[in-house]
């Protein structure tokens, strides 16, 4: 499927901490009763990945059928896009650059470290998420943006590869404060159903 699930702007406050400044989600394609959990999860993954990406670096992480693209700018402002694996990665990365530029124009850099998610008025994010569901819309934009060097994007094949040595996704999920009890149960069940073919 060619689909964008979420787009978020985060601020990296330290080497391994980040806060979410604004996020937009499209969870319509998921089952109604699971949308809440899935949204929490996307927020969790976006935050975790930003925390583990160095300043001034781009990464793409493939996890099962999903792709997660992250870009942390030199000034610690970060953008994360979660999409389906078929969504062109080139478009995702240009989209992040564009969104971060606009965000900087709307919200002054001096307020990033103090402002909370609720106080930020940046409706363009939702509009972009809807508009660029069709990557053709974005193509005109990507043609102008030729400065994106695709070879510099680090590609990981699982989310575990991004985590620091010794870290386990299961532990991070269990520890997380951003996830509700229901979402954690959801994660465990999904883990169990997806691992039916493993002998371990």
């Amino acid at each position: 499927m060619v689909k964008l699930y979420s787009m978020s702007v985060l601020y990296k406050t330290g080497p391994d901490s980040a806060v979410c400044l604004k996020a937009a989600y499209d969870v319509q394609s998921f089952n109604f009763f699971q949308r809440g959990s899935i949204q929490e999860f996307m927020a969790f993954v976006s935050k975790t990945i930003t925390e583990r990406t160095h300043v001034a670096a781009r990464q793409s992480v493939k996890q099962e059928d999903y792709m997660c693209h992250v870009y942390v700018r030199g000034d610690s402002l970060a953008g994360v896009v979660i999409s389906d694996e078929d969504y062109p990665p080139r478009v995702s990365h240009t989209l992040i650059t564009k969104v971060l530029d606009e965000f900087t124009q709307t919200v002054p850099a001096s307020s990033w470290s103090t402002i909370s998610e609720r106080d930020i008025n940046f409706p363009q994010l939702n509009a972009y998420l809807a508009k660029y569901q069709n990557p053709r819309e974005a193509d005109a934009m990507t043609k102008i943006q030729t400065d994106l060097d695709e070879t510099k994007i680090i590609l990981h094949n699982t989310i575990e590869a991004v985590l620091e040595r010794g870290e386990k996704l299961d532990d991070l999920v269990a520890k997380s404060e951003g996830l509700s009890i229901q979402s954690k149960a959801f994660y465990k069940t999904a883990r169990k159903t997806n691992s039916c073919c493993n002998f371990s």
Binding site: N31, F32, F33, Q34, Q182, A185, F186, K188, T189
Partner: peptide
Amino acid sequence: KDFCIVPINENKNKSPVLYEEHNLGLEL
């Protein structure tokens, strides 16, 4: 619209049949 089995593992002493906005769910 649709039916699904919702991954809720605890019995919270209320009906496990969920119904919201034309979606039907049954707790796991």
